[in-house]
Design a protein around this nucleic acid. Structure first.
Lengths: 109, 109
DNA sequence: TCCCTTTAGTTACTTTATGTAACCAATTAT
DNA sequence: ATAATTGGTTACATAAAGTAACTAAAGGGA
């Protein structure tokens, strides 16, 4: 009877980042507010899933959605403080990838 | 024509961590070599998926599998140097979760 | 007025991944 | 020979992701 259980907060955090695309969306938004169509192009995600993920992230308090009623309409997504505070996580992943991921591994496009 | 593309190495790294359970398995193995049945219990993953994930992680060079022909057989999974070097990533996720994840959010069991 | 363009999505459908539970193989103690 | 234990695998159901066509709103031009 081993009672060693994984920290529930850590589990919540990693289940967030384990959702496909979520990490990439946050990483991309770390470079500043961006609009829907730009995110789809840069990340290579479909509108359907991007929409779903952004709604989730908004509900989690990681992302804000701002409507600019121009013509045509412009909608910008930006990280909240909670979202921005994931930068150290992303930095460490980036750092690890530079050391351990070979350039030749990156041919999955 | 915006040429800003996400770093391919980063993409490879995060697609690894975005696979469900993979992050938790690595996190759990950071506390030392462990056997199959222990991992299923602590993480709450089925044998089918744990088996699949461990094979992946072995193929990626993050985990080793060692057979001890005792009775009954004992098989231990351990992180390689490449796997251990993900500790700073896990530490940052842990750190973030302590600040931003409320204890009340952790009721998904 | 009607049609065209643009952004930001949504809907319907197919394919892939995950969850669940029963089953199998090897080994050895009874 | 039978049971017990570990470390899986197989077969099937459900959920998530991929794809492509479609819609809504808001001008702009013919």
């Amino acid at each position: 009877m081993d009672t060693s259980v994984i920290c529930p907060r850590f589990e919540t955090a990693i289940s967030l980042l384990s959702q496909r695309w979520t990490g990439l969306i946050i990483y991309q938004l770390l470079s500043g507010p961006q609009r829907f169509s730009h995110l789809t192009e840069v990340i290579g995600i479909s509108g359907r899933l991007l929409s779903e993920r952004l709604k989730n992230l908004e509900a989690e308090g990681l992302v804000t959605r701002t409507v600019y009623p121009e013509t045509p309409v412009r909608i910008e997504y930006a990280l909240t403080e909670k979202g921005i505070s994931l930068k150290p996580v992303m930095d460490e992943i980036q750092n690890w990838s530079q050391i351990w991921v070979e350039p030749t591994e990156t041919r999955k496009v």
